[in-house]
Amino acid sequence: MSTVETAGRLVVRLSGECDMSCSDELAAALSAAIGRSPRTEVDLGGLRFLDSSGIHVLVTAHRDARARQAIMYVTHAAGVVATVLELTGVAALLAPPPQASGDRS
């Protein structure tokens, strides 16, 4: 997991597998990012696995961001990570805002 600042937003990059053994670490990283920046992108491109505990962390962080008038969204989900986000309906909730479409490049 790494956090980099770029072009008016913080990008939190996840890699490896995210389950209950690392959800606390993810929650702390997202909370720190949301506290620092009005825009946080969570780049899932390097993530090979995401379970319900990771999804709950993402949804909670998204709610916290909204409460702070901040934006948090996910990008580059693939494979089984994209599948689980779609079937839970969370892919749409955490989709990039329209004005962030350039972030997908």
Binding site: D51, S52, S53, I55, H62, V84, L87, T88, V90
Partner: peptide, 19 residues
Amino acid sequence: VMPAADAMRGRGLAIVEQV
């Protein structure tokens, strides 16, 4: 049953049922 997209928990067994 799969909870709403913004629910804070409760997805684990619903995922099992769906996949």
